[in-house]
């Protein structure tokens, strides 16, 4: 990958990876830092990266950068911690979008990651597995469990509203 390919990767994918990291971190500054870190790593490794696989490389790097950040700071929820039982809250929500955003935040981090990659970027189970280091069947399981939780959460919230 040369400099032109790299700059094209900036133009083509920085928005998407920023959205992904913003959803993961809920913090604009942190998400921006992670984007920069991701692209710096891409630049350093550009000779080893095939320009056709650059999007996958970017998301893989971004995902692992986020994981590293979690391990360093322990700021975000533990990766395996489940918040599946937390349906209650005190705020009023006026539309599905808000409820869905709230529901996503309740998911365990790994389920949140795979669903974001699936819905935001349309990655296949195999691609998500490569990005996250899971097996393909694990990805499928996490997506199914995540959707089940979201469906139940939305259902309960809509009853309340």
């Amino acid at each position: 990958m040369n400099r032109i390919d790299y700059n094209n990767a900036v133009a083509d994918f920085s928005d998407a990876v920023y959205r992904f990291l913003l959803k993961k971190t809920n913090d604009e500054d942190t998400a921006r830092d992670l984007v920069q870190e991701t692209y710096e790593k891409l630049w350093i490794s550009k000779d080893k990266v095939n320009s056709e696989k650059v999007k996958s490389y970017i998301f893989t790097t971004a995902y692992h950068s986020f994981i590293d950040l979690v391990r360093r700071n322990k700021k975000f929820s533990d990766i395996d911690e489940s918040k599946n039982n937390e349906y209650s809250h005190n705020e009023q929500y006026s539309d599905l979008h808000e409820i869905l955003n709230l529901a996503i935040e309740k998911l365990p981090d790994i389920q949140k990651s795979v669903i974001l990659l699936r819905d935001y970027e349309g990655y296949s189970y195999l691609e998500i597995a490569e990005i996250t280091g899971l097996t393909e069947s694990q990805v499928k399981v996490y997506i199914y469990r995540g959707r089940k939780f979201l469906q139940q959460f939305i259902g309960k919230m809509e009853m309340v509203i």
Partner: peptide, 16 residues
């Protein structure tokens, strides 16, 4: 229909 609602849609107005 309730499962269809779990499909996330990216907000394309969020840009880097």
């Amino acid at each position: 229909d309730s499962f269809k609602k779990t499909k996330l849609i990216p907000n394309l107005e969020i840009k880097y």
